[in-house]
Design a protein around this nucleic acid. Structure first.
Length: 288
DNA sequence: TATATCTCCTGCGGGC
DNA sequence: TGCCCGCAGGAGATAT
């Protein structure tokens, strides 16, 4: 599932392969892939045609292409299964090809998305806290890999909330880029159960979980991201290797690499959470 | 206002 | 073999 490291791998690939390219034509093959572009598929195709990719940027799990001369952003979210592929036109269409942009450098930029949670949208850029961001990204907090990420400020936000720490880690307006996999890995490294309540946790403990998030996502990025199946790939269609380094996510009943206890799986927010019952004890009082 | 839950979507795998 | 159901989960919408 694409979280920050996987999206950053894609961003780097796009920077290498599409920066400076001009879009010659666009085909939207599935309207749901552009549902966040309110004027509709035809407008998106029309506005993209003739635009040149001036930059490829990312915040959290969002990435965007800055387009000139219109000076707008093509905002891309991969959702759960989205892929941005740079392919020669001779490569047959992928089964779940949703959008194709033909570039003047002889390549296709393809958006492939099995579960259609992702999509493309055009948006103006606005200045937020010294950064130029597309409007749909303006509410997204800085991610832990951002050079201007302020861990102390995030600790203060967490201390001011009364919610479970895992829920807060997944809230992209608090800290971005963290999804279910890296939330579990970060909490395991910080030896915290995801149901612990934020305003009961010490500042050092909150700093530790943020540091763990930065650390684990940095390691994943160095290995090209995490992949469990063919759903996450880089722009060349290759998978990362970090799934081989996960300590808890997907490790149910396997021994904890720190203490040997069997990793447990629990339901949380309608999804699976993995943790070590010994290193990460449940809070004594659980909320209803 | 803050927090919690629901909903969208498709393909795979297990059970019958 | 084929059908049904649960599961995977990001993020906006809706409910509390």
């Amino acid at each position: 599932m694409p979280e920050l490291p996987e999206v950053e791998v894609v961003r780097r690939g796009l920077h290498e392969h599409v920066l400076g390219a001009t879009i010659e034509s666009v085909q939207v093959l599935h309207p749901r892939a552009v549902r966040r572009h309110e004027p509709g598929p035809r407008d998106l195709a029309l506005q993209l045609t003739g635009q040149t990719v001036a930059a490829v940027q990312r915040r959290g799990k969002y990435l965007w292409l800055v387009l000139e001369p219109a000076d707008v952003a093509l905002v891309v979210h991969l959702g759960m299964s989205g892929q941005m592929l740079v392919q020669p036109p001779s490569v047959p269409d992928e089964k779940h090809l949703r959008i194709r942009a033909v570039l003047d450098n002889g390549a296709d930029l393809r958006f492939v998305d099995q579960r259609t949670f992702g999509g493309w949208a055009l948006a103006p850029l606005v200045e937020i806290d010294g950064d130029l961001l597309p409007v749909p990204v303006s509410h997204i907090a800085r991610d832990p890999m951002d050079p201007r990420f302020d861990a102390d400020a995030v600790v203060n936000i967490l201390r001011g909330k009364h919610t479970e720490i895992k829920r807060a880690l997944l809230d992209q307006t608090v800290v971005s880029g963290v999804g279910n996999i890296y939330a579990d890995e970060s909490l395991w490294r910080a030896e915290l159960h995801g149901n612990r309540i934020t305003d009961t946790l010490s500042r050092p403990k909150l700093r530790a979980v943020l540091a763990a998030a930065r650390e684990v996502m940095g390691e994943a990025l160095a290995q090209g991201g995490t992949s469990f199946d063919a759903l996450y790939v880089n722009v060349n269609g290759e998978s990362g290797y970090f799934d081989r380094s996960l300590d808890v996510y997907g490790q149910e009943n396997r021994p904890c690499s720190r203490c040997g206890a069997a990793i447990r799986r629990e339901k949380f927010m309608n999804r699976s959470s993995y943790s070590c019952p010994r290193c990460q004890p449940r809070p004594r009082v659980r909320r209803a």
